[in-house]
Design a protein around this nucleic acid. Structure first.
Lengths: 230, 230
DNA sequence: TTGTCCAGTGGCACGCAGTGCCGTTACGCT
DNA sequence: AGCGTAACGGCACTGCGTGCCACTGGACAA
């Protein structure tokens, strides 16, 4: 196919082919079903050869969530560039919000992807694995932060899992409602409420830790625009 | 193969073939590597035809974790048969411990499975999906319990994810150490510590809720054999 | 302009996972 | 003894994913 060859010549052309393939895949998966759509179908719909599809995506499933690793890298960057004195609560909140930005970038596509990953078992399991990559990332950085805490590993595991779970709850509620533009703030707010549920200072914690915890709580309360508990 | 046919005739024969297939699969995966082992190899090593393998397992990966659904069912039973007044903390702890029992049933096999799911990317992702099934199960029952709480969904998501994460942390530490028989109690104890990190009563909680919370804390403290915080 | 390089493409063939189908076998039941 | 049936093995087929190779058309130098 000459057209595809010319498109793929330049970097913009490559991005265009990639978009076409994603669009064709999502379209066909929704209309015809995931199992009943072959890679040949997707490639043909995008006007490229079957072999070219696998030059853009590692697998058939990859056409649905192709930017997973980029998102992971962005979150890792948030953690790595964070100031050491930044409270843990605000840090994990910031990291989580990064993902919101990515999804909000193309709401229509996000909703379609959500529906597919929600309904097709294979894609749902793959999504679970992706989410677990986020969880591991969170936990890894938290464990580093809690190195001095005797229960640090446990706290890191619990907080990491809790944050990711809350994030998914908020995100999926938003996506399930069709990703309305005016619903993004509610989504972010819902996610931030997780900070109030994170475990407090460890049993053998020192004074500094306690102060940090109170600071975190105060910051979170400010962000939620809610008065302190009576 | 006449031998296999005769073995498979009776229920005990079926169980035997199944065990042989699992053993052959684990053995070959560890020795030759997962990717370099074909289903033909596994079937041949177990003395059955390739077609028969797929009558016992849905897929090649299934030979590693074939009892996943049974475990899910056992946990669901714990939740369904629980008394409504049982504190949430003890309930999720009991449910989690059920899984320990399953793994402790055949420690050698559990360790080999752990190594494989730890090292082979495909199997690790599949394991993530399995763990997420547990998380969903926990969350589903917790959400029912927290129906009266305005933040019930969030609390259910957070507690469910936290409990499962803590469970995995304890379990994998035990498996990583070679699943020593005298290490199971430490594993269970480590898991139980998660109860101390679970979010307390909701902001708008009522008195009953507060009392329940204190009860839960007391029970957990008793189980951990540790005195109340000074 | 002409020749050379090369990144990207499409086609072909292959291995392997998973499935439907069918003939065969051996056990249980009457 | 004869029959029903459950489990088996083999065969053929679809589809995913990969290695290989020839081709194409743009970029660049002479």
């Amino acid at each position: 196919m000459t057209v595809a060859a010319r498109r793929g010549r330049s970097p913009e052309g490559r991005a265009e082919v990639r978009r076409d393939l994603v669009a064709a895949a999502v379209e066909l998966f929704l209309v015809r079903g995931y199992e009943d759509t072959t890679v040949d179908d997707i490639a043909a719909a995008a006007g490229v050869g079957r072999r070219t599809f696998f030059r853009y995506f590692r697998s058939k499933e990859d056409a649905i969530s192709p930017d997973h690793e980029a998102a992971l890298a962005r979150i890792a960057e948030v953690f790595e560039t964070a100031h050491p004195t930044e409270p843990t609560a605000t840090l994990v909140l910031r990291a989580g919000e990064t993902v919101f930005d990515i999804y909000a970038d193309d709401p229509r596509l996000s909703v379609e992807r959500y529906r597919l990953t929600h309904e097709v078992p294979v894609l749902r399991d793959r999504e679970s694995a992706s989410v677990d990559h986020y969880r591991r990332l969170f936990t890894r950085y938290l464990r580093r932060r809690f190195a001095s805490d005797p229960d640090g590993d446990l706290r890191a595991a619990v907080i990491g899992a809790a944050v990711v779970a809350a994030h998914n709850l908020a995100l999926r509620a938003w996506l399930g409602a069709g990703a309305p533009e005016d619903g993004m703030e509610a989504c972010r707010g819902r996610f931030r409420r997780v900070a109030g549920m994170l475990p407090g200072e460890p049993a053998g914690g020192d004074g500094l830790h306690a102060v940090t915890q109170r600071l975190e709580q105060a910051v979170v309360r400010l962000e939620r625009n809610t008065p302190p508990a009576p």
